[in-house]
Simulated assay, not measured.
Amino acid sequence: MTDTTLPVLHHKAEIAALAKRYHEAGSIGMQVLSLIGGQAGNLLERLPDHAKDRLEEGTRRALTVALQAAQQSRGVVPDQKGWLNTALATAMGAAGGSGGLPTALAELPVTVTVLLRAIQGIAAEYGFDPDDPAVARECLTVFAVAGPLEADDGADMGFLAARVTVTGAAVHSLIARIAPKLSVAMGQKLAAQTVPVLGAVAGAATNYAYTSYYQQMAHVHFGLLALSERSGLPRDELVAELKTQMAEPRLTRN
């Protein structure tokens, strides 16, 4: 085995590990849907029209508030372990779901802030500085992926290769681009929290799913970025390898 073969095998192993994270990220979302009954596609129908009409704007505001709060809190509160972020978000989801839609809406920006702080902490794990504006944009980009309640066929991976398109963009314009997609995911979460009787349980379960999901996606996002910088391989090439890895298990299951 040549010296050049070892680095290639190493990066292939990293890609395989990241593909495994991606595959496993959404599995708990299916358990949430089983708990509350129904499918992700009809969850939004449970929200009243006035809530659906304000959802995208509310998500945009939540992202803006989350970015400011997350950045300001980094100098005061250290990054937490993934399990602690998940536990905190789970508790908030239970509280948000206990009072129906009003408390769920009030809890939304707090949950987004916790999610963003968790993503920033993972960026730091891979050697990136979350206070760097470029890295801050990368952290926001993680929210561009579908939420855990959506079935993902691997087509929704453009966020992994989005660095070229977002570098240099103003943060508010990036938030405006992310908000419509995130609002769908957050709307599903809010709808789950309003399920009669199960509100608190569904709120805890959905927040657990969302925190687990976005932390896994952050590992994939920054893992690929770090691998690209270490190996010198283009990011798009690594994303293509990841897609190939993700397709292989499906072939074996069919």
Rank of each mutant, 00 (worst) to 15 (best):
S98D: 06
K181C: 10
H10R: 12
A169M: 15
Y22P: 02
G37A: 08
G26N: 03
G37E: 04
A69M: 13
M30C: 05
E237Q: 15
L160F: 12
T211P: 07
Q68W: 09
S228Y: 06
Q215M: 15
D236T: 15
A179W: 01
F222L: 07
M157A: 09
A170G: 14
P7L: 08
D53Q: 13
R74G: 00
N254W: 05
A134S: 12
A185G: 13
Q80W: 11
G100N: 02
P133A: 07
A13R: 12
P196I: 08
N42P: 07
A151F: 09
E57R: 12
S27Q: 07
T211H: 10
T165V: 10
A87Q: 07
G168V: 13
A169C: 09
A66W: 02
G58P: 09
T5S: 02
Y210P: 02
Q39P: 01
V135F: 00
L67D: 01
T113D: 00
D49V: 14
A155R: 08
T2G: 15
H10W: 08
M92Q: 15
I122W: 04
S73V: 01
L108W: 04
L227M: 13
E125T: 03
A136Q: 15
A226L: 07
G26A: 10
R46L: 03
G147N: 07
L43M: 06
Q120V: 01
V8K: 12
G75S: 08
A89S: 15
F128W: 10
M217V: 05
E56F: 05
G187E: 02
A123N: 06
G199D: 00
Q71G: 03
A205G: 00
A176L: 03
V110T: 09
A209V: 05
L225D: 00
E57I: 09
S183A: 15
V184Y: 00
V142T: 06
R137K: 15
D129I: 04
L198Q: 01
K20L: 10
Q216D: 14
Q39I: 06
T211Y: 04
A16T: 11
S27C: 02
K243N: 11
I36E: 01
V184K: 01
Q71H: 08
M30G: 14
S27F: 01
M92P: 05
A179C: 03
G26W: 01
T167M: 10
A144S: 14
S183G: 08
V239F: 13
A62S: 11
A247M: 14
G168W: 06
P48E: 04
H11N: 10
G97W: 05
L108R: 09
M92G: 10
A123H: 09
A240K: 15
L63W: 03
A176N: 08
G100D: 01
R235Y: 07
T111Q: 15
A70F: 11
L84T: 05
H172E: 12
V201A: 13
A118L: 14
